[in-house]
């Protein structure tokens, strides 16, 4: 058996803030420009990748977040086992990449997903993020790619004061410490 090690594996609570690392979940990077690509993804997952910037689409199982006009990230809501990832990745890779209509890349371990919850969530982000959350925070499903403490992140607004934040794994530890350090003052 190989041991699974996620970078943080922890949950912390502060005044009206809870930060948790969520793992393991499936994350796939999807890229494509052709109409066939959209149809194929829609057929396989029963969700169409959103074409409006800064938005997402989803169902009970999956979310697809807009990253750029030809790029999306898909992630699952449930923690799932490795076999599922392999299966989904292979299936989509065959349908999309091998059919030359786009690309499918497994990024489950490339991104670490943190969940931040609580009334002070957006104030916490404002300590290091230049993004204007005034409209974002009231828009369920909104997506923002921006910087938090100079580190690239993808932020997905799940619910009122409840968001998922993706950070590249090698930065996860540093960002985690930084978020925790910031939270002390709330």
């Amino acid at each position: 058996m190989l041991n699974y090690n996620s970078p943080i594996n922890d949950q912390k609570e502060y005044s009206e803030i809870r930060i948790t690392e969520v793992e393991p979940i499936i994350k796939l990077n999807l890229r494509g420009k052709k109409r066939d690509f959209m149809t194929k993804i829609g057929k396989e997952l029963s969700i169409i990748p959103p074409s409006d910037p800064n938005t997402s689409s989803g169902n009970e199982k999956f979310n697809i977040l807009w990253l750029s006009p030809d790029e999306w990230i898909l992630y699952s809501n449930d923690k799932s086992d490795l076999n599922n990832t392999n299966f989904l990745e292979e299936k989509l890779f065959n349908e999309v990449s091998k059919s030359k209509i786009g690309s499918i890349t497994n990024v489950s371990d490339h991104w670490t997903m943190l969940n931040i919850k609580g009334k002070n969530t957006f104030d916490l982000l404002s300590t290091g993020c230049p993004f204007n959350f005034n409209d974002f925070k009231n828009t369920k499903g909104a997506v923002a790619q921006t910087l938090v403490n100079h580190i690239d992140v993808i932020i997905h607004n799940k619910d009122l004061n409840n968001l998922n934040l993706f950070v590249r794994r090698s930065f996860a530890n540093h960002l985690w410490s930084w978020l925790n350090d910031s939270s002390r003052f709330f």
Binding site: N29, R31, D70, T105, V107, S108, R169, S170
Partner: peptide
Amino acid sequence: LDVYLTSVTDQY
């Protein structure tokens, strides 16, 4: 060109 690039530095 029909080419897509995705960073996977942290994946592996």
